[in-house]
Design a protein around this nucleic acid. Sequence first.
DNA 1: AGAATCGATTAAGGCAGTATTAAAGGTTAA
DNA 2: TTAACCTTTAATACTGCCTTAATCGATTCT
Lengths: 223, 223
Amino acid sequence: MHILLVEDDLLIAQGLQTGLELQGFTLNHMAHAAAAEQALELGHFDAMILDLGLPDEDGLQLLTRMRQQGKDLPVLILSARDSVLQRVEGLQAGADDYLLKPFDLRELAARLHSLLRRSSGRSTHLIEHHGLAFDPATRETTLHGELVTLSRREQALLGALLQNPGHILSAEQLQDSLYGLGDGVESNAINVHIYNLRRKLGSEVVKTVRGLGYRIGVPREPA
Amino acid sequence: MHILLVEDDLLIAQGLQTGLELQGFTLNHMAHAAAAEQALELGHFDAMILDLGLPDEDGLQLLTRMRQQGKDLPVLILSARDSVLQRVEGLQAGADDYLLKPFDLRELAARLHSLLRRSSGRSTHLIEHHGLAFDPATRETTLHGELVTLSRREQALLGALLQNPGHILSAEQLQDSLYGLGDGVESNAINVHIYNLRRKLGSEVVKTVRGLGYRIGVPREPA
DNA sequence: AGAATCGATTAAGGCAGTATTAAAGGTTAA
DNA sequence: TTAACCTTTAATACTGCCTTAATCGATTCT
């Protein structure tokens, strides 16, 4: 799950980043509205966490413009100011949820999950693909009913592939999915993780498309 | 068991806190209705003890509003005023029980237990999980019929894990469960308690999920 | 076929998260 | 008050994950 975090307070951003990454999200952090807008053009995000008090522009303006452009990604507003009016304004501008600072990290995570579940008709609660199932909430992977233990990176990788069945994801895209846009890694780490995934789930789960990338495959039947 | 105590008399609050914590509950204390409401938003509680005479708002109003919002956590009203009318009003506002000041601490504890038992379909009287049983009322733990002596913190830890079978609880969540929201500890105390739990109950009772936290496991069979 | 490119495989090192142990401070009961 | 026990702190040991990097194998292009 790829989240765009737009927040100018670096301390809060830092906390959110580490906290939510532990919960299985991948965050990209932008401190300015302009940078956020650019990021939205460049990459794909599943949701956005938007602070209203930005240095270069009010968050609500950014949100309004996004909606006018037809972008429909779920937006959760973070705000220190609370009043019914504020809340209404935020929701009218096209926000999907509104959370007050200070907030509880778990609540934010829970709301994000529910938001993502709502938005992508498909439940966030269980992604299933030919006997291979991944539950983002409990972070458990099962293959034909058997529980398989995956590391954090392996889970992220599998999640990214499962969310785009049939689509080919380039190594670069997968990298973005694991580390966030740009903050890549300078080796064949993705490769190694793919290898380990195949070791645990069978070589057919991940198909290689030479020159292009990888896509999810149909795992072998149980023995 | 996590209780939200809403009481403006600090002396009473203090007494309840120490008394109920000795009985295995974890309390968070708020002296104002507003603070209580905020706490309810931020964290999870298993029940609420509500004093009616609050400085900023009548407790009944708070309760009524909570119920309108669909919050269904068990509420036990504490009141100095007694009359049939009062009692009826309280219950009509959505209270689950009504206790008069001055009260006996043991009675309060007993009522809390019965309240919790009623509310969580699952009996509060005995949480059982693969031969491992914990009775919150007597605070006794047995493993395959054998009585095991656990310290207060160990009991709280085991209780929290047993109440969420299958779920992963982060060190932070467990900390909240032991000390109340925010009032944390600045060391690896949780870690040490987990270690001691494993020493007493076997290493399999608590499973470590690297990077995320802990969850209850299946204890070893008796010898 | 030979060269070049891309992906697979393997092993090693560093790092972060946990486990373990010991010790000090506090509380409770005799 | 002493003694036993519980809790927290802190230091150290350990484990597994992630990345790196080197090598091997396969495919494509010339």
